[in-house]
Design a protein around this nucleic acid. Sequence first.
DNA 1: CTCAATCCCGACAAGATCGCTTGGGATTGA
DNA 2: TCAATCCCAAGCGATCTTGTCGGGATTGAG
Lengths: 177, 177
Amino acid sequence: MPASPHRPSFHGTGAVAFSTKGEYGVRLMVQLGRHFGAGPASLAEIAAVEDMPRAYLEQLAFVLRDAGLVVSTRGAHGGYELARPPAAIPMSEVLRALEGPLAPMICATDEPGHDLACDRTSSCTVNLLWIRVRDAVAGALDGVTLADLVPQRIVILEAPPAAATAAPAIEGALTAS
Amino acid sequence: MPASPHRPSFHGTGAVAFSTKGEYGVRLMVQLGRHFGAGPASLAEIAAVEDMPRAYLEQLAFVLRDAGLVVSTRGAHGGYELARPPAAIPMSEVLRALEGPLAPMICATDEPGHDLACDRTSSCTVNLLWIRVRDAVAGALDGVTLADLVPQRIVILEAPPAAATAAPAIEGALTAS
DNA sequence: CTCAATCCCGACAAGATCGCTTGGGATTGA
DNA sequence: TCAATCCCAAGCGATCTTGTCGGGATTGAG
């Protein structure tokens, strides 16, 4: 396990995989949601709380700003705040801004215009599958708004009936609240 | 343009993105589905029909074989055939074999065992989101079997949310062209 | 028996992408 | 003035993808 400069393990394995852009970006939005109504919050502050690299977070903040999800205030005491109340921000919009259009396959984009960019449309029956997956993801993300993620997590650790998780050693389970 | 060594363009953009493993693998399974009941089909044959690199297809075939989805026959006149009838093969199983477990985030794997590999479980509210997405994708893929993709392009623009598959007779065995 | 067709398998190479850093600017309140 | 903050572009190493290559092992046919 060499100490690597970057995150060692990848985030999503295989098919449906959000990257750190999605992860960090969503966590940033959650923090802004907690801060909503209390003026701008600085990135340095949020980066410290969430333990994310500040410079990288900046790039994501720019993307969210360009997408009209956050507004920025420059200069001292500046920072970012939500452009809308959390309940008016569907997570589908956030993740589309961060990770691009939801397209499991090029032939199943949800972008308007090039609905079908597949040259084998005649023989391509699998197209149905990708579209179903795309709609499922879009539906799931549409059904969650930022307001659903903002409240403070109430830890519910219900152990399975049999085969209780024999994990007595959990390092650093508690983070600063 | 066609003289390119590898495929230039990536397949899925951003969040939910299947790779060529998924695409080629599914198309391979569809061909095997069309060939079902007619003995083994050789990879060279399928690679020619679907215009996919044969050597690469081999690797995917090994994975599908190890997953118990296809069986192989060695030697001359050998090849691959489905281990089960197409209606008994949910696409979720195919894609999990090809692309790995459905995990939009490491903290939302559907693999048994490491249900939670997140160290910030206390403050992590976003976990809810990833799990929703994961379940949506799993549900969509569970609702489609290989039999749904085998027939020759019958456009069904109906997405019944529950009790989807009602096809009683799977006489398949339809010899391809 | 010989031979060709086929599956089997490991290694690797080009390229793209990801995650993150660096290094500077521009703008504002105190 | 000065520090805090946003803004932005470029680049770098690690990893993953998308194949290719080269050789085996196994079998049916002639």
